[in-house]
Simulated assay, not measured.
Amino acid sequence: MAGASRDQALALLAAANNHGDLAVKLSSLRQAKDILLAVHPSFAAELFPYLVELQSSPETLVRKSLIEAIEEIGLKAMEHSSILVSVLLVFLRDGDSIIAKQSIVSGTNFFCSVLEELALQFHRHGKVERWLEELWVWMVKLKDAVLAIALGPGPFGVKILAMKFLETYVLHFTSDANDFEKSSIEGSGRAFNISWVVGGHPVLDPASLMSDANRIIGVLLTLLQSASSLSGCLTITVVNWK
């Protein structure tokens, strides 16, 4: 990172963390995010430890803005984003439902992007880089944490988003006739499907993932059978699963 940009970003992150005015904090974080997005990912990664220090901010809006920044920066600098994803897992259990919900939304986007990168990287290069394998481990932890939220006690709004995440998970790992070449190379915009990696992948095990998706379907069906114990919104969410 160029010296001037690095110093400016550090000063902005310090202001976002320590300034007494909330508006200044939010503006400083936004400006720091813009700098980190503008430089090469490897240079931006040097400041990630300073960025994640904001997770201890007492202001909800700062923490929410941090999650949004983590998603935007992390998806651009995916190779270096493990430290950022770890913050999302911490925020899943934040006492403020606004933070927990934003963590699930951003975590869902991360999960889908990592899956697509796993499939594309192996398809194009015949291998998967170590950093991507490590990032997938974080995605599995994310899925397990969101499943625990869906099944445990907590605010209805957070639980509904957790179930939406699980719906995405199940759809990704339910095989269909999607053709990987057409979907990924011709840019049809289709979401990842497990059929993309049927036939062998060094990280993704289709049989295991489809089995886990079926297990989660069973868990949600069990919840539906005990619908009297769920709120109306949660029951509708389960019923509306595709």
Score class of each variant (00 low, 15 high):
198 V>T: 11
110 F>I: 01
31 Q>E: 15
163 M>L: 13
163 M>K: 03
192 F>W: 04
201 H>I: 10
167 E>G: 07
159 K>A: 11
143 K>P: 00
68 E>W: 08
169 Y>C: 00
101 K>D: 12
216 I>K: 06
91 F>M: 08
68 E>Y: 03
74 G>Y: 03
61 L>T: 14
156 F>I: 13
39 V>Q: 10
157 G>T: 10
24 V>S: 04
118 L>W: 04
191 A>S: 10
163 M>N: 06
205 D>A: 13
212 D>R: 11
58 P>E: 13
2 A>R: 14
125 H>C: 01
58 P>S: 12
154 G>N: 04
143 K>M: 07
179 D>C: 05
37 L>H: 07
221 L>D: 12
213 A>N: 10
169 Y>M: 02
64 K>F: 06
218 G>C: 03
162 A>H: 00
168 T>S: 14
196 W>G: 02
194 I>Q: 11
40 H>Q: 15
52 V>C: 09
4 A>Y: 10
133 E>D: 10
233 C>W: 10
20 G>F: 06
104 I>T: 08
197 V>I: 15
166 L>G: 03
123 H>V: 01
89 L>D: 09
125 H>D: 01
119 A>Q: 01
189 G>Q: 03
33 K>V: 06
98 I>N: 12
90 V>T: 14
187 G>F: 09
141 K>T: 04
206 P>G: 06
157 G>F: 02
233 C>E: 14
24 V>T: 15
144 D>K: 11
201 H>L: 09
110 F>L: 04
165 F>R: 12
181 E>T: 05
4 A>T: 09
48 F>Y: 12
96 D>M: 07
202 P>G: 06
168 T>V: 15
115 L>Q: 05
30 R>K: 14
167 E>T: 11
118 L>M: 12
17 N>Q: 15
121 Q>I: 00
84 L>P: 04
143 K>D: 03
26 L>E: 12
109 N>S: 11
176 D>C: 09
50 Y>E: 13
133 E>C: 09
38 A>D: 15
144 D>N: 14
138 W>K: 15
180 F>N: 01
218 G>I: 01
146 V>I: 14
189 G>R: 07
83 I>F: 00
113 S>D: 04
106 S>E: 11
217 I>D: 08
37 L>E: 08
103 S>W: 02
103 S>R: 06
195 S>V: 09
150 A>S: 08
59 E>C: 01
242 K>C: 00
149 I>D: 03
103 S>L: 05
52 V>Y: 08
241 W>D: 01
67 I>G: 00
135 L>F: 00
25 K>C: 02
3 G>E: 10
46 E>P: 00
77 A>P: 05
107 G>M: 00
75 L>C: 02
21 D>P: 04
153 P>E: 11
138 W>M: 14
205 D>F: 12
68 E>S: 10
151 L>V: 03
162 A>E: 01
124 R>W: 04
50 Y>M: 05
107 G>I: 00
37 L>S: 05
32 A>W: 07
180 F>K: 05
106 S>F: 00
200 G>P: 02
50 Y>I: 05
55 Q>L: 08
66 L>F: 01
76 K>F: 11
208 S>L: 14
32 A>G: 11
154 G>D: 03
82 S>K: 15
23 A>F: 10
232 G>L: 11
55 Q>Y: 02
26 L>R: 14
1 M>T: 05
94 D>R: 00
6 R>S: 08
218 G>L: 01
52 V>P: 11
191 A>Q: 07
3 G>H: 09
175 S>L: 09
123 H>N: 03
